[in-house]
Design a protein around this nucleic acid. Structure first.
Lengths: 328, 328
DNA sequence: CATGTTCATGGAAACGATTCCATCATGGTT
DNA sequence: AACCATGATGGAATCGTTTCCATGAACATG
C-alpha cells in the first residue's frame, strides 16, 4: 500500500549510473548513446516519472502557467480559458485557474496565491488598474494580458480583439439604419471601447445613454432595465458582452419592447444561443478561444524577452436583432 | 532587480531564532508567546511568504486541488468549476484545471500531469471507465467524482444531481401531456439516466428513439438532426444537456418543426438562455455550482478518510417548450 | 536533594530533482 | 612519448521548507 514513488535515484541505481547522468539523459543533455538507451529503458521499465516538486524547488519556479479571468461562468471567458488550456496541453504544462470577479482586491489575492505557488507565467484578464501588477511584474513574473489592458500599463504585452473596430462597425451599421439615439451598455474595463463609441458617434453622443454594469448578471439586468425605463426614446443598444446582451434582451422583453421593431440590439461576443434567440441576435464576434491560445503561446514562448502582443479581428455578424429606426 | 525572495532563513536570522521555530510559529506549532510575537512581527516586516515549492517537496504533495471536466466551454461545467473555485479560494488552495473532452485517453494524460505536479486531491467528472482510475486511486490520490460516476467505481465518493428523479419527473410530465413516442438525446456518461428513462417509460420505450452524441456541438447537432429526420413520428424529446438542447432547438428549426406544437422539448440543465429562447425552454435544473462546491468541500475535508458522497435535488422548471401531443 | 516531566528551542536531516565541478578515459596533435 | 582538447560521468551542493531529535531550562514530586 505505502509504496514510495520511484525516484531518479532508483533509476540511477537500476541503470548502474549516477543520478546526474539520468537527469541529463531525461532532460536532453549530453550522454553516450549506449548510456542514454540503457537509462531510457530502465526508466520506462520502472515507469519513472520525474516529480515536478523536486524540479520546481531546484529551479525556483513552478512550471505551470497561471490563468486569471473575471468569471469562468461567462461563455466568453470559458472559451478564452479553453484556448489557454489547449496551448498549455500541447506544451504539457499545467494551468492554475483563478477568478477575480473583476475585483481588484480578489485579483491581488489570486496573484499572491500564484506567486506563492512559484508560478512565473501568467495569462490574465486584468481587473484592477496597472499598479496592482507593479510588484508582480517587478518580481520577474512573465505576464500577458488577454482581452483587455490594465489602465496605465502599456508595457505588458496583450492579446486583444480589435473591438475598437468592432464598435465602429456596429455604430456605423446602426446609424446607417437611421438610428440616432444609440446606447452603450458596458461592463468593467471597457473604457477604450466607449471612447471609440463616443468618437464614432460624434455629435450624436448622449452621455446619459452610456451606462455601466459591474460584473454580475444582476447588475447587468439592473443597468439595462434602468436605461430602458429612464430613456424610452432610445432606439438602439450596443451591449458590451454576452451577459449584458442577455440582460438587454430580458429587460426589453420585460418592458414589452419588441426587438428589432422598437429596439435594435447588437451584442459583443457571438455565443451559441445568439442564434436561438428570437429574433436571432446580431453580434460582433470575438475570437475568444484564439485570444486565449495566442496569449498562452506568447507567455510560453517568451524566453525572458518581452514579446509583442497581437490584435485579432472582430466580425459583425448580421442576424435579426437590428432594424430601421422606428418612426413613432 | 535580481533580489532573492526572502526565505524562512532570513526571518529566522532577523528574529534571532532558528528556522525550526519560525516554521513552527507560522504553521501553528507550539512556541512561547514572546517568541511567537517576535517572529510574526519580523515576518510581517519582511513581507515573508513561505514558498509552496519548498513545503510541497518536503511534504511530498502539492497543496492544490486538481479539477478535471470534459469541456470548460460548456456552461454546466463552467458553473461546476466556479463552485470548486469558490470552495478552494476560501481554503486558499490553488486549482489546477484540465479538460478531458470526454476522452479516456486525454483524461489519462491529464491525470498523469496532475500526479507529476504532486497533486493529491482531485475533483473530476470522469470520462473513461473506472479502470483508468485504478492506479491513480491506489497511489493515494483523494478523488471525488462530480456530476457522474465512472462505470464500475462505486468505491469513489461522488457528488451527483439526482438526475434519475429528474428523468422520472420529465417523462411523467411528457406522458401526462399525452406523449407516447419520446426520444432521449444523450451525451457521454448518461447510461444511468437512460436506464431510468427506459424504466419509467415501460412499455412505451422505443430503442430507436434513444440516441447518443459524443461530446462536441457538431456531434450533438448531427444526432439531433438524424433523430428528427429518421423518426418524424416522435413528439417529444428529452435532451441530456444544454449543448444537446441547443442542438435540438437548432435541428428542429432547420426541419421546420415547431416547438412545442410539433415537438415538445425538455432540456437538462437550466442555462440563462433557456429563458431567452422562443419558446422559453422547459428544463430540469441541476445545481451545477453546488455540485462543484460540495465536491471540493469533500475533497478538502477528507483527511485520508473516504467521505460519503451527496445527491443534490433537481427541479423541473416548466416554461413553454412542452405542449400536448399533436394530433395528426 | 535527586529525579522525572514538560516545555521551548535550534541543529540537521530529509524531500527529489538540477547543475556545478572535478575526474577520467579517449584520441588527436606536436 | 608527452601533451592537450574533448566528452562522458558521478559526487556533492543546492533549492526552501518541515520535522525529527537532542539539549537544556524550569518546575514539580518523591
Amino acid at each position: 500500500m505505502n509504496m514510495r514513488r520511484t525516484t531518479i535515484k532508483d533509476v540511477a541505481e537500476a541503470a548502474g549510473v549516477g543520478v546526474a547522468t539520468v537527469s541529463r539523459v531525461l532532460s536532453g543533455g549530453s550522454a553516450s548513446p549506449e548510456t542514454r538507451e540503457r537509462v531510457l529503458t530502465v526508466a520506462a521499465q520502472l515507469d519513472y516519472r520525474p516529480s515536478a516538486l523536486g524540479r520546481n524547488l531546484r529551479q525556483r519556479r513552478s512550471g505551470g502557467i497561471g490563468l486569471l479571468v473575471p468569471d469562468i461562468t461567462d461563455s466568453f471567458y470559458g472559451r478564452l480559458a479553453d484556448g489557454v488550456l489547449a496551448c498549455a496541453r500541447s506544451a504539457g504544462e499545467p494551468v492554475i485557474l483563478g477568478t477575480t470577479g473583476d475585483d481588484a482586491e480578489r485579483e491581488a489575492e489570486e496573484i499572491a496565491v500564484l506567486l506563492e505557488q512559484g508560478v512565473d507565467r501568467v495569462v490574465a484578464v486584468p481587473a484592477g488598474n496597472g499598479e496592482i501588477w507593479e510588484p508582480t511584474l517587478r518580481s520577474g513574473l512573465t505576464t500577458v494580458f488577454a482581452h483587455r489592458l490594465a489602465a496605465g500599463r502599456q508595457d505588458v504585452p496583450a492579446v486583444l480583439a480589435d473591438d475598437r473596430a468592432g464598435v465602429r462597425t456596429a455604430v456605423d451599421y446602426l446609424t446607417g439604419l437611421g438610428h440616432r439615439r444609440i446606447a452603450y451598455l458596458g461592463g468593467p474595463g471597457q473604457d477604450s471601447r466607449v471612447s471609440v463609441f463616443r468618437q464614432t458617434l460624434g455629435a450624436l453622443v448622449d452621455e446619459e445613454l452610456i451606462v455601466f454594469a459591474r460584473g454580475s448578471r444582476d447588475s447587468a439586468y439592473a443597468a439595462a432595465a434602468g436605461l430602458f425605463q429612464h430613456r424610452p426614446d432610445l432606439t438602439a443598444v450596443l451591449a458590451g458582452g454576452n451577459q449584458l446582451g442577455e440582460a438587454a434582451v430580458l429587460a426589453a422583453r420585460e418592458l414589452d419592447l419588441r426587438v428589432p421593431k422598437d429596439l435594435s440590439l447588437i451584442m459583443f461576443d457571438d455565443v451559441p444561443w445568439a442564434e436561438l434567440c428570437s429574433p436571432p441576435l446580431t453580434v460582433i464576434a470575438e475570437p475568444a478561444q484564439d485570444i486565449g491560445y495566442r496569449a498562452a503561446e506568447l507567455v510560453l514562448r517568451a524566453g525572458g524577452r518581452r514579446p509583442r502582443g497581437a490584435l485579432l479581428p472582430t466580425e459583425l455578424i448580421v442576424r435579426g436583432s437590428c432594424g430601421p429606426r422606428r418612426t413613432q
